[in-house]
Each structure stands twice: as structure tokens, then as C-alpha cells.
Design a protein around this nucleic acid. Sequence first.
DNA 1: AGCGTATCTATGAGTAATTCAAAAATGCGA
DNA 2: TCGCATTTTTGAATTACTCATAGATACGCT
Lengths: 146, 146
Amino acid sequence: MTFAPTELLREANLRVTGPRLAVLAEVEAHPHSTAEAIVEAVRDRLGTATIQSVYHILNALTDAHILRRIEPEGSPGRFELFRDDNHHHLVCRSCGEVSDVACTVGHAPCLTASDDHGYVIDAAEVIFWGTCPSCATQATQTPPTS
Amino acid sequence: MTFAPTELLREANLRVTGPRLAVLAEVEAHPHSTAEAIVEAVRDRLGTATIQSVYHILNALTDAHILRRIEPEGSPGRFELFRDDNHHHLVCRSCGEVSDVACTVGHAPCLTASDDHGYVIDAAEVIFWGTCPSCATQATQTPPTS
DNA sequence: AGCGTATCTATGAGTAATTCAAAAATGCGA
DNA sequence: TCGCATTTTTGAATTACTCATAGATACGCT
């Protein structure tokens, strides 16, 4: 319940505008939305909105660390509210749906590479690939023809 | 040293062609190459090559599990020889360079999500983000102006 | 070795996702 | 409520990649 979009914007020194609030409301309501889905939601709220503006807003909010962008291979970018909680993602190979998972072993064992090659590592990103319950059910009912 | 491109192709029931051998030679010589870099290398070897053909070849070899495609956010797709060894990647935020890392804790602890949300998980992908040694050195010499 | 055909590559066009540049509109501090 | 910097819109461009089809090539067979 600590979701105060206006203050998030103010704290980042960004102006509070209709389109920005609409984008934030949508991302909060539907995490992991694509830019495409977000424009549509913004249009529902405000009447009009261009995809370019939404991209511009998404970039501004991502730069300000209000949003986080994830981009599973083969999918357009998706956006969620930025949380400093080290969670990871579960992606369905069949429908592309994304879910959150907390990091497996508490805090960070899987965030340490065995050999860092001299890199200064600042983050680890984990993506679990699989099939979501509803796609798994469908696949059982109508197996792929190959 | 056990790199026999011709046999890899034969085993997958694929024809052994100049372009395919050139692509494999390049990926073996420079793992994590982009399609763009690969066409250029193929052109050096064979005289001509179109980017579309290279994409076609890369897709065919990826489907045959001879290559693996990785796509760090913000980067075009990159290709490496497929090895069933569960290794992960280290990506430099500054220059985009990719290095391999063995999975941290042996076999698979970081491959198990704490809560699978009912998904049937078949793979886990880990990307470590950071700064590579040479970019880190440059950054120290000329700090960013902001 | 030569042939025929299925497989592969080249050519040309097209699409999806995203960015860039410049003009019009709007938020908000004074 | 005025002014101006910040935002949004408009319109065009770019990047990474796919699709369709025609032409070329590998390779099993004789």
C-alpha cells in the first residue's frame, strides 16, 4: 500500500503529469506490461496517448529508478515498479507471461560468480524458463504435432 | 579441441556448406559474436555473404542445438557453440563484452526457484552485470561527468 | 563422373520495437 | 497568472530481424 506515484515523481525531480501517473497506475496494476499494453491502458484513462510518448516516459522513469525494465529473449521489453528486493523472474515459453520469484537462497549465493574474470559485478539477473500452469494444461490436452 | 564442424552438421542431418562452416569457424574463434560480426567474418573467408543468409544459418544451427543464442538486454543477439555445461554469462555494461562463468555452486542450487508458481521449469539463465577490467580502468582515468 | 532433387543461399521486400529531432503544449515556481 | 523549462506530440528514421520466392548447391544414387 505504500504506492504514492506523485511522491515518487517529486522525489526524482520529475514533473507530475497525467501521462506519467497513468503509466505508473498501469504498471502497478499489471506488472510486467509491455509498452504496447501500457499505451492502451493510458489511452483508456486519458483518451489519447502516443506510443512514442509512452516510450519516452518509460525511459525517463527507468533512468530515475522508479521502473525497472526486463527483456526476456524474444519478448518486447516489459516494465515493473523498481524494488530493491533482488527478486527474479519466471517466464513462460509458450505465452510469454512473467511472474516474480524471490531469490532462491535468501540473500545472495547465486549472485556471486565463481570466477569474476576481473569484472566489477553490480547485479545478477536470473530468469527461469518453463511452462506456466495454464499452458501446461493446454499442452496436455492438445499435444504439439511433431 | 574436439571441434569437428563437419560432423556436428552431419549428425544433425544438415548439409555441409561453405557458409555454415564459415559461421561455425567464426563462432568457435570468437564466442558471443553478433550476427553483424559473423557476416563480416564470413565475407572475409568466402568473399560474399548476405546478412539474411547468416541469420538463416544461425537459426538453423540454433534449432539443431549446435549453437546457443544469448541476448543480454540492450544488445543484439549473440551466439556461442552449444555446450550442455550449464554455464552463465558476465556482461560489461560499458562495452557489451560477454564472458563465460561456470555456475557458482557446482550443479544447480541457483537453478531452483523458491516458489515455482506451478510452472514446469526447464532452464535457468543467469546474467551477471558489471564492468569489465578494461572499461573499469578507463572509467578510473576519465570519470563520467555528471 | 553425372543427374535429380531436396536442401540451402541470395535477393528483395516487409515488420516490430524502439529512438531521434523539432514543434506544440503543459506544469509549476515566482 | 505569467514565463520558461520540462513534457508530450508529431513525423521520420533506425536497428534487428523475418518472410517469400527464385536461383544455386550438396550429395545420394546410378
